[in-house]
Simulated assay, not measured.
Amino acid sequence: MNGNVENPVLKSTTELVGRLLLVGLFLLSGFGKITAYTATAGYMTAMGVPPAVLPLVIAIEVLGGLAILLGWKTRIVAVLLAGFTLLTGVVFHHDFADQIQMIMFMKNVSIAGAFLLLAANGAGRFSLDARTRRLS
């Protein structure tokens, strides 16, 4: 058997599960910010970020996470979330003398890398993007 033969169901299922795993953090974080709005605004202020941007951050995390999960406008949203993830890493995890902050920064870099792979390859067969292409 040729090692290059793909199993389309396995590939499509893996793409869907990968998207779910990738955005789980964003969905939990976004909803967590809603339930702890005042505390989150205070933390942002302490980090030099105006709390007025908190609604935008929540929208990016929740709506962007849902878009990736559903595979809607995946390439565009993935690029936007990669930039957002890098920006939050720089703003909130820039104390590289602290090993935990360095690890958190590298986590953000890794997540951004996953989003860029998603932007390059698309959401796959089990997505609204693929459904839209099939209906066109």
Rank of each mutant, 00 (worst) to 15 (best):
L28F: 13
L28S: 10
L28A: 11
S29N: 10
S29M: 10
G30N: 04
G30V: 13
G30H: 02
G30W: 02
F31P: 01
F31V: 15
F31E: 06
G32R: 05
G32F: 09
G32S: 09
G32T: 13
K33A: 10
I34N: 06
I34W: 08
T35D: 11
T35S: 13
T35M: 12
T35G: 08
A36K: 10
A36V: 11
A36T: 15
Y37K: 03
Y37P: 06
Y37H: 10
Y37T: 12
Y37R: 05
T38W: 02
T40F: 07
T40L: 04
T40K: 02
T40I: 12
A41E: 08
A41V: 12
A41T: 12
G42V: 14
G42T: 14
G42I: 14
G42E: 14
Y43R: 06
Y43N: 10
M44D: 04
T45N: 06
A46Y: 02
A46T: 14
M47Y: 07
M47G: 05
M47I: 09
M47Q: 12
G48I: 13
G48A: 07
V49W: 03
V49C: 02
V49P: 00
P50W: 06
P50Q: 09
P50Y: 05
P51C: 05
P51W: 06
P51L: 04
P51Q: 08
P51H: 06
P51V: 03
A52C: 08
A52T: 15
A52D: 11
A52N: 06
A52I: 15
V53I: 15
V53K: 01
V53S: 10
V53N: 04
V53Q: 04
V53C: 07
L54E: 11
L54A: 10
L54G: 09
L54V: 13
P55N: 13
P55E: 13
P55I: 15
L56G: 13
L56H: 03
L56M: 13
V57C: 06
V57A: 14
V57L: 11
V57G: 04
I58G: 05
I58Q: 05
A59D: 06
A59L: 14
I60N: 01
I60Y: 03
I60T: 15
E61Q: 11
E61T: 11
V62C: 05
L63C: 12
L63M: 11
L63T: 13
L63N: 03
G64K: 00
G65S: 06
G65K: 00
G65T: 10
L66F: 14
A67C: 13
I68V: 15
I68A: 01
I68T: 04
L69Q: 01
L69T: 08
L69I: 07
L69K: 00
L69H: 02
L70M: 11
L70G: 02
L70K: 00
G71K: 01
G71I: 07
G71F: 01
G71Q: 03
W72C: 05
K73G: 11
K73Q: 15
T74Y: 00
T74M: 02
T74S: 09
R75I: 07
R75S: 08
R75C: 03
R75T: 08
I76V: 15
I76F: 11
I76G: 01
